[in-house]
Every structure is written in C-alpha cells, then in structure tokens.
C-alpha cells in the first residue's frame, strides 16, 4: 500500500472576525487510510472540512491536496476530492438520477455506465428515478456518497456520514470505506460524533478541541496509550480481605464489587500477570480475572475532561 500524503495541512488557521475557529493545524492524511476527525460540537470540524474543499478561505497557512494548494490552484486540487459537507443537500426537485447526471456533467469522462454502477453500489437502484424530495435521510446520505465517489477521487471527505443511516447501512458504509482505503488506496477523511463507530472504522484518529489539534494517533495506540483499565477479580468470598491486603502491597486499591466475592482494581493491563502470580503464590483461589478494555468513547470523554 502506498502511503504518500494526500492531504497536507500547513499551519492551517481560520479566523472569523476576531475569533480563531481553527488554530494552526499541521498534519498529513495518507493514501490508504481511514482518517477519523473527532471533536465535540463546535470544535471546528466542519470549518476545517469547508477549508479543505475551498468553500471558505484559509486565513493563514495552506492545505495541499496531492501537492496542489486548494487556495491557489483550486481547480487542480479539487479534482482529487469527492465529498459531502455537513448534510447531503441535493436537489430535491430533481430525481436521484438527475442529481448524479448533474454532477457527472461537471467532470469529464463519466459515462452512463459509471452512473449506473455507482447507483447499484450504494443500493439505490430501486428509487433512483424518484424525486429526491421523497427520499429518507438515509437514502439521501447514500445518494450523497454516490455523487462523492462518481469520479473515483483519491480523497474522500465525509462530514458525519453515518447520520441517518440504519445499523445495516452503517455497517455497509464502514466496510465500504475500509475497502476503498485498504484495497483502492483512497484517503478517507471522516468526521463523526459516533465514537464507537469511529473505533471500528478508522485507522487513525485526530482529536480537535476548540480549533486545536489535541491528539493524533493510530486508533489502537490511541485507545491503549497509558491506559488504565478496570480489572475485575473474583476470589473465594472468605479470601477477599486477604486479597485486598495483597493488592495494597502493589500500591493499588481493590474495591468491593457487586457480589461478596467480587473486587475491581484500576490498573494497567500489563500488570495483570504480576497480580495473578502474587495472588496464586499467597494461596488465593482466583475464580476469574477479567480486564475491561476502554473504548474510544471512554478515552475521548476522558480527554475532553482533562482539557477542561
């Protein structure tokens, strides 16, 4: 898989009036990766996406797409981009097919065959000749994705694409985006609030808060890094007090859980074997050890709290 940068943020900043909405972004989005763009409401995700596609001017810095500045070489740079910005706003008084024809006319070399292919791909074959005003939100989202993929762009930008999709649709989209990135080498840039979804979908996660990039990591590292997991322990009920004392030797606190024989401890996953050995050596009958891994959501919320 080639890992050349498709998008390069270079000190990208957006100021509206006196307010700095996006503050000095510096990172790359590589070919073949699904790049998750996380952040609470009002963090500046949509503003960043608007700058990426040239809808609003960049106040300072630049964004390069395949080496072309979106500000100075708009027509060259935008050729590589397909996307949805905010909502899939399409022409409601036209049919789905007319919408696609409309966008197909705006780039050269899109055949009727390609339109039909993409319609089939997003599963809108049945309703493509109906007016978009009769579509559900999920169907509009699908049509939005169809217009974004029409011209085989090497960069796909989606602002909250799972919005309005049903669970099957979300799963389909996830597999679809992964396939595009991993098989065809497309750089997929997704913003979303659905953290659990991002965890399953993305290879890399960037977190934006109040316009600033606060973290950018591979998704597994992002969740695991200096992560304190919750370890659930079940021992013979008569041995819980002894267990607590032993755990205290490790400078940790064991807290009583739900049942009389249950305890839980905040600790690193790496320390679990050590704990296990200590308990066994001291004759504790361990019935079960269970590590509850943290989700991206836990991590994300934690991170936001830290920033406060």
């Amino acid at each position: 898989m080639n890992q050349q940068p498709i998008v390069q943020f270079q000190h990208t900043t957006k100021k509206i009036g006196r307010k700095i909405i996006v503050d000095d972004l510096n990172f790359d989005v590589l070919a073949g990766e699904v790049f998750g763009f996380l952040g609470p409401n009002g963090a500046g995700k949509t503003t960043t996406i608007r700058m990426m596609v040239g809808l609003i001017k960049i106040s300072r810095g630049d964004i390069l797409i395949k080496g072309h500045s979106i500000a100075r070489e708009f027509e060259k740079a935008i050729r590589y981009v397909g996307g949805i910005v905010e909502n899939p706003d399409l022409y409601k008084y036209l049919t789905g097919y007319q919408n696609l024809k409309h966008y197909a006319r705006m780039v050269s070399g899109i055949s009727k065959k390609r339109i039909n292919e993409i319609v089939e791909h997003v599963g809108l074959k049945e309703s493509i000749h109906d007016k978009v005003s009769s579509y559900s939100l999920g169907m509009r989202q699908r049509l939005g994705i169809a217009q974004a993929l029409l011209h085989h762009p090497p960069l796909l930008i989606l602002d909250e694409p799972t919005n309005g999709l049903d669970p099957a649709g979300i799963r389909e989209l996830r597999n679809n985006l992964k396939e595009l990135a991993h098989q065809e080498g497309v750089a997929v840039f997704v913003s979303s609030h659905l953290l659990s979804e991002m965890q399953l979908m993305c290879d890399k996660i960037a977190v934006l808060q109040k316009g600033k990039l606060v973290s950018i990591e591979n998704v597994h590292e992002f969740i695991a890094k200096d992560s304190i997991s919750r370890v659930y322990l079940e021992v013979e009920a008569s041995q819980t007090e002894l267990t607590k004392m032993l755990v205290a030797d490790l400078n940790k606190t064991a807290v009583a859980g739900n049942g009389p024989s249950e305890l839980w401890i905040q600790m690193n996953k790496e320390e679990v074997p050590e704990l296990n050995k200590l308990l066994l050596d001291n004759g504790i009958r361990v019935l079960s050890i269970h590590v509850q891994e943290r989700t991206l959501e836990d991590k994300f919320l934690e991170m936001m709290e830290e920033e406060q």
Binding site: V53, G54, E75, E86, Q147
Partner: peptide, 14 residues
C-alpha cells in the same frame, strides 16, 4: 437556501 451550493462549488470549475 437549499444548501446545494456546497456540492455545486466543490467541482473542478471556478
């Protein structure tokens, strides 16, 4: 008003 301006302007045309 319909928001379609966004998808209209992100095409390779000035």
């Amino acid at each position: 008003t319909s928001g379609t301006i966004k998808l209209l302007l992100i095409r390779p045309h000035s």
